[in-house]
């Protein structure tokens, strides 16, 4: 999945963490926001099952982040959102742009509300995700380095 994004920070500080948060949130929201009604339940499951454990949601930096999701192979799911982090929490999510028209699509607002409600799209750690090859170690390490401040 290719993702493009830009970040606007109220405090003018463009920090790597902000990018990661924005990208992660947008990726999740982007998937959910842009699907047809018939596929929404499947997509909900997919969202719930995405292990976004790279981002420490307890360390969100306040600011307004804009993120975009390219929308997959045919750009069917292209969309752009604005996420406001306030007091360390996701306070508001707005859909800025979507490539799909309203016919046959689902309003993403309830999905956004769920993100705001639960603040818990991530898990802290995954049981049973055994990695037994040294080849994977580098990838794991890189992921965690990004998440660390």
């Amino acid at each position: 999945m290719k993702i493009r994004s830009n970040t606007v920070n109220k405090e003018g500080k463009k920090r790597k963490m902000g990018w990661i948060i924005a990208l992660s949130i947008v990726m999740v929201l982007g998937i959910g926001a842009s699907v047809g009604l018939s596929r929404v339940f499947k997509e909900h499951r997919e969202i719930k099952s995405l292990p976004l454990n790279r981002v420490d949601f307890s360390r969100l930096k306040d600011g307004v982040y804009i993120g975009a999701y390219e929308g997959g192979m045919y750009k069917w799911r292209e969309n752009k959102v604005q996420v406001t982090v306030s007091g360390g929490k996701v306070a508001d999510i707005k859909l800025l742009k979507a490539s799909f028209n309203s016919t046959g699509t689902t309003d993403p607002a309830p999905l956004y509300e769920r993100v705001i409600d639960r603040q818990s799209l991530l898990v802290d750690v995954i049981s049973g995700a055994t990695v037994t090859s040294k080849g994977y170690l580098q990838a794991v390490e890189n992921a965690l380095l990004q998440a660390a401040e």
Binding site: N53, S120, D124, V125, S127, G128, A129
Partner: peptide
């Protein structure tokens, strides 16, 4: 509490 995910056995 800690949120511990259980790895999907097929994905």
């Amino acid at each position: 509490p800690w949120t511990v995910g259980i790895r999907h056995p097929r994905c």
